[in-house]
Write a protein that binds this DNA or RNA. Structure first.
Length: 499
RNA sequence: CGGGGCGUAGCUCAGCCUGGCUAGAGCGCCUGGUUUGGGACCAGGAGGUCGCAUGUUCGAAUCAUGUCGCCCCGACCA
């Protein structure tokens, strides 16, 4: 048997390892449709966990869900110049609405549409058009709406979860009476994303504004959360955009203020997608497959009955059922524990490995010996697969919440340590190519440098395949001069290769 | 969309260069048996119009052209 469940290992071939983890974890697979994935039940359960937590956070901050059309009239996309430019190259366009049987038995599109429809790559324009109707008075503001939806961006090089032609996400769209309120909203949502990433996904992120070159098409300012993957690359894991009055002007989203004079709204948009699943994998998974933080694991504990005779079976199963009930009465982070009994007729080793590969935080084996001793055999996913400890059953039940907490924290701490180990403060230009030249086995990571928000910086970094990811808001001020332009800057930025 | 590679069983691949009997292996799957506290062993079995189309040929997995898809590297992006 191979030493590890996943082949190749991370060190051998990182991209291939990623795909094997997705497969072994039964998360998703490629579909017959170019660039589109099928999210399998286990992957979707994980997404539903993320959705549930985020949705709660959105609602707690006053947002409500709604749903807008999948199709956007072509002319809508044309309304904001930069927006068109940004998305024009990756749009799926619907031009016909009917099929007819051709002479050779094949279906031919007919019924040409007068105005083609674009399958939404994002919904600013269609939602803005509705806001223009809904908003008349300052009393209508703010409008705080989120939608859970699928979007399509015709990507040339798809990668499961990270970049597929169709993906699932949420997009929040808000309209405000003042600039200050809209900026506040933009930052509030950025903060929610950062909290979610770190608290629930155990994925440390840097949050802050991106340079103009990395801005969302049509935005005044784009903020992102950036996480380091285990190959040292950055993953933009969420974005929050301050759109200023750009879209409001383009779409005539206006309101009458208290004095009766008319002005344009200030709008924001923000989103995270199923890409987070890719980020979760590349942050925590190891050479034995997925490692799920307990907070988002669809099942936190799997009970594996071990039995030979029918008598054993009945007794062991009864014990499992009773343990499941006891566990489900316990809570961790304000939720009942999620427990599953896996009594499938499979060999014990096979079954256990499936759960290892699917990243279940705790595996508990219960056999006749445990029954007699009143104990359980416990394995934690953050430790090697063969590490098992025997615990008295009562103690296990009592300690489970602490165990989950320590796994959750351990994963976060490990990820932080990895990020720190692969980050460096660089203070002269020459050090940058040197840092990023470390290719292959040694992931380069993040460089913390002084750079101005200037096209010259992007141009200088381009040959290194490196970009400015963001300028973290919570880093302390450290005035310096841009390594490329000599302009004064207040604080360091993160530069890295990215997904 | 540019450069490179690859499409043969559910998965990983051999066979192709040099066309020729009924297209192979390992893993996985199914059945039976022996096993069983840790990804078992033995025996038997199912499963493939060799990505698709056209062409060359008596004959194509094998040669040619086209096409579709996938992977890697660029460009683009959540």
């Amino acid at each position: 048997m191979p030493k590890h469940a996943i082949s190749p290992t991370r060190g051998e071939d990182y991209p291939e390892w990623y795909q094997q983890v997705v497969r072994a974890g039964d998360l998703a697979e490629a579909s017959p449709v170019r660039g589109c994935m099928v999210i399998k039940p286990h992957g979707f359960a994980l997404w539903e966990r993320m959705q549930g937590i985020l949705d709660g956070m959105f609602k707690a901050t006053g947002h409500r869900n709604a749903y807008f059309p999948l199709f956007i009239p072509l002319s809508y996309l044309e309304q904001e110049a930069k927006h068109v430019e940004g998305f024009a190259k990756e749009c799926a366009v619907v031009t016909h609405h009917r099929l007819e049987l051709g002479p050779d038995g094949r279906l031919i599109p007919t019924g040409k549409l007068e105005e083609p429809l674009v399958v939404r790559p994002t919904s600013e324009t269609i939602i803005g058009a509705m806001y223009a109707k809904w908003i008349q008075s300052w009393r209508d503001l703010p409008v705080l709406i989120n939608q859970w939806a699928n979007v399509v961006r015709w990507e040339m090089r798809p990668r499961v979860f990270l970049r597929t032609a169709e993906f699932l996400w949420q997009e929040g769209h808000t309209a405000h009476a003042t600039e200050a309120e809209a900026v506040e909203e933009t930052l509030r949502m950025l903060e929610i994303y950062a909290t979610f990433a770190e608290r629930d996904l155990a994925m440390p992120v840097w949050k802050g504004p991106k340079p103009a070159s990395e801005r969302f098409p049509g935005a005044v300012e784009t903020f992102s959360i950036e996480a380091m993957m285990q190959d040292g690359k950055a993953l933009q894991a969420g974005t929050s955009h301050f759109l200023g009055q750009n879209f409001a002007r383009a779409q005539q989203i206006k309101f009458a203020d208290a004095t009766g004079s008319e002005s344009f709204c200030w709008t924001t948009s923000w989103g995270v997608s199923t890409r987070l699943i890719g980020g979760l994998i590349m942050t925590h998974a190891d050479d034995d497959g997925l490692v799920l933080p307990p907070r988002v694991a669809p099942e936190q504990i799997v009970l594996l009955p071990i039995h030979r005779s029918d008598d054993d079976r009945a007794a062991v199963l009864a014990c499992c059922e009773s343990l499941k009930k006891q566990l489900e009465d316990r809570r961790w982070r304000d939720e009942p524990l999620r427990v599953k009994i896996d009594d499938r007729d499979l060999r014990g080793g096979d079954k256990a490995w499936q759960h290892v590969k699917q990243g279940v935080p705790l595996r508990v084996e219960i056999g006749p010996r445990d029954l007699a001793a009143g104990a359980v055999s416990l394995a934690c996913r953050d430790k090697p697969p063969k590490d098992r400890q025997t615990l008295p059953l009562e103690q296990f039940v009592a300690e489970v919440p602490d165990l989950l907490e320590s796994i959750q924290r351990g994963l976060f701490d490990r990820a932080v340590a990895f990020r720190e180990a692969h980050s460096a403060r660089l203070d002269d230009q020459a050090a940058i190519p040197e840092f990023f030249a470390a290719d292959g086995d040694q992931p380069a990571g993040f460089a913390h440098v002084h750079v101005a928000d200037d096209p010259a910086v992007a141009a200088a970094l381009d040959p290194l395949k490196v970009t400015v990811r963001c300028t973290p808001l919570n880093w302390s001020d450290e005035p310096g001069t841009c390594l490329f332009t000599g302009k004064p800057v207040q604080r360091r930025s993160v530069i890295a290769r990215s997904y």
